[in-house]
Design a protein around this nucleic acid. Structure first.
Length: 411
DNA sequence: ATGTAC
């Protein structure tokens, strides 16, 4: 129980709604995000309060950087379409001195090992990458296949998605792979990705079903993206099974890619090395049943990470900024959560308008990464100050390692 | 974020 008088919670109250408790001291919060949070807080099945992380910003469906505890109902658009999106990080036994002087070869090896960007099984350009390492993918898919079969028996349209073809692929947008160094110059590999095409299709399908099921009452909701399934309904059970499967797909996807990246690393580093030391694999876009304040609740984390006492998590900064391996403090008021990153301060289009390629080159001078006009939207200046974000959540997590990127592959 | 269509 958080009885810490110094816990810097900012309270946003909503007439007729649940309180909104925000860990945002010293970081900006958009008025649009506040309004969106207040809409969510009006839903009658919110358990106790919403918890808001310091990387909070307006999102599609629900606010990024929020924790939505519910009882008896679930909002599929709150989880969104990038179901199970999250981070994996592994420390290797290598140090900076073991890496080659020129990191361009390492970046290129990773780019060849992991299909990234707009990849489909049908595109000729990516044929090579798709044909590689089927055996490893198969062993992961074997664990996902039985429940996918059950899912597609009821929802056959999901058979038409990229599913096993996307296992072990990065995707686009802010999905990335990085090689980092910690404070002791030890080499880490980390990456950010989700459930790809099939998770997107599952999210889209159930968001539409919730809106359809509620169509006679949907005008009474503050936002049609707050359409929900009530516990006990068929779609509730189907959604919980489907979203849980997509989350597992995402976790396996990150594991497959991690082993591909480590294999790529071993091709450019002559020294043999150990891995799986201090491995962390965490979702930051998901829902699961948890116990809080002595009650069973559904916890939706949209751009938030579980931070139970002693639990390890990953908080990446933007390209060119620091990232953090953290340990949860088990802050009950936050439903044991922390932020999932720095949080954007401006849209991708605004960032591309505001900054130039020269700005991006300057901001990422110490990182082996792309620096062309296509990646300006990830410029560090389009994100909140990660140090301020970490300070605002010092009652939620403690920093175990501070990482700085040396190589970044952007999806 | 992804897929598809324009």
């Amino acid at each position: 129980m958080s009885k810490n008088p110094h816990d810097p919670i900012q309270l946003l109250s909503t007439p007729g709604g649940a309180p909104v408790k925000m860990w945002t001291q010293g970081v900006p919060v958009e008025p649009e995000a506040r309004a969106q949070l207040q809409n969510t807080a009006k839903m009658p099945f919110i358990f106790k309060h919403l918890a808001v992380m310091p990387d909070v910003h307006l999102g599609k469906g629900s606010t990024i950087g929020s924790v939505i505890p519910t009882r008896g109902a679930i909002i599929p658009a709150a989880v969104g379409v990038d179901i199970g999106c999250g981070m994996i990080a592994v420390r290797t036994s290598l140090t900076a001195a073991d890496l080659p002087d020129n990191l361009a070869g390492l970046r290129s090896a990773i780019e060849q090992a992991v299909p990234h960007g707009r990849t489909t099984a049908r595109s000729k350009r990516d044929k090579g990458a798709w044909d590689r390492t089927p055996q490893e993918v198969d062993s992961h898919w074997a664990r996902l296949a039985p429940r996918f079969k059950r899912l597609t028996d009821n929802y056959p349209q999901l058979l038409k998605t990229n599913n096993h073809q996307h296992l072990g692929t990065l995707g686009t947008g802010n999905h990335f792979i990085e090689v980092c160094l910690d404070e002791q110059q030890r080499v880490w590999v980390m990456l950010h990705s989700g459930s790809r095409g099939v998770g997107n299709a599952i999210g889209t399908l159930f968001i539409a079903l919730a809106q359809k099921d509620m169509q006679r009452h949907i005008a009474n909701l503050p936002d049609r993206d707050l359409a929900y399934f009530e516990e006990g309904s068929r779609h509730f059970d189907d959604y919980m099974a489907a979203v849980g499967w997509a989350q597992d797909f995402a976790r396996h996807n990150r594991e497959v890619m991690m082993s591909r990246v480590l294999a790529a690393l071993s091709t450019v580093v002559p020294k043999p090395f150990l891995t799986q030391q201090e491995a962390v694999n965490c979702h930051h876009n998901y829902v699961q049943r948890e116990k809080h304040f002595g009650e069973e609740v559904l916890v939706t984390r949209k751009g938030a990470v579980s931070a139970q006492k002693g639990e390890m998590g990953i908080i990446p900064g933007s390209m060119g900024a620091k990232s953090f391996i953290v340990r949860g403090l088990g802050n009950a008021e936050s439903f044991c959560s922390c932020s999932h990153g720095a949080g954007r301060t401006m849209s991708r289009t605004a960032a591309k308008k505001r900054f130039s390629v020269e700005d991006q080159i300057r901001a990422t001078a110490h990182v082996e990464c792309r620096k062309d006009s296509e990646v300006i939207d990830e410029i560090p200046m389009a994100y909140k100050d990660i140090d301020a974000v970490m300070a605002a959540q010092s009652s939620l997590v403690e920093i175990v390692h501070t990482l700085r990127q040396v190589v970044c592959v952007k999806g």
